[in-house]
Write a protein that binds this DNA or RNA. Sequence first.
DNA 1: TTTTTTGTTCTTTATTTGGAGAACTAACCG
DNA 2: CGGTTAGTTCTCCAAATAAAGAACAAAAAA
Lengths: 152, 152
Amino acid sequence: MLNENKLELIERIGVFHEQRGMQPLMGRIFGLLLVLEEAEATFDEIVDYLNVSKSAVSNALNILQLQGHIAYKTKPGERKRYFFLTMDKWEEAMEKELCDISQVSSFMKDVLKERGNEKPEFNHHLQDLCNFMEFLKNKVPALFKEFRKSQS
Amino acid sequence: MLNENKLELIERIGVFHEQRGMQPLMGRIFGLLLVLEEAEATFDEIVDYLNVSKSAVSNALNILQLQGHIAYKTKPGERKRYFFLTMDKWEEAMEKELCDISQVSSFMKDVLKERGNEKPEFNHHLQDLCNFMEFLKNKVPALFKEFRKSQS
DNA sequence: TTTTTTGTTCTTTATTTGGAGAACTAACCG
DNA sequence: CGGTTAGTTCTCCAAATAAAGAACAAAAAA
């Protein structure tokens, strides 16, 4: 069993992800794989730790894998899968999330195309926003580069 | 009535926001206030344009106001409210959204505190992620400054 | 060959959600 | 005063979601 702190952390992490559109159990699994000392767990361990049904876990694991949040490895002579967070790819994930923000600009451009010039100030704000998002998207690689430099 | 393009845009914008956790109607109202030439609408106009009930609109408008996405003004001699997107504050909104990403670091730190040292590599990735989020948060003001400079 | 392990898939169910519609309210209007 | 405007609040309902549980399947073990 997990201690009180870890259980609470799992719930906090779960709620956090829920609020960002993940289904509840997915968020809990995310949390579990973060707080587990081994940083990995088998299907049955997840069922036991979180006290949920196999079907729910099967479902959640498949979605988490599709979204690239987790992966699994096997051990020689065992059929069990050991699921783990793909933490080694956090830079990719973060980059994707940053660029996602700036995807607003895709439809903002369409909005601008559709708008007349009755409200120039409003249009100007929209244009500014688009420009910033473009700026940000272009800036992301340099940002990572600068970060890595600052770390070494 | 709105033309086909605008209606389709409203739906696209609606779905976009839905996927980020907004309730459907809120996203549609967001879209409506973007594509309307006047960039504003009264309660009844929203009801008519989007073909929804008053109760739903009342609800959605209140939440959108609480979240700071929209505001309203009144016109002298009229009781009607004219709702509009608070586009003039897009920088604040964007800044908040950027900092939100880095709020992951709040519970990531707790995760690190809770973890032993059995998986140093995993812990290291976690630490890197925390560091990057801190880095990003600190970088946001400079980013805006640089953007404004590039625009002038 | 039968049983066990390691899941998956299908059907059912409880909960949540989002919105409809009607009743209500407060301000103004004639 | 009664009616109209501009919303709000309450009760109800339909649809979507998330998960339970049972049946199923494929591979390995006994």
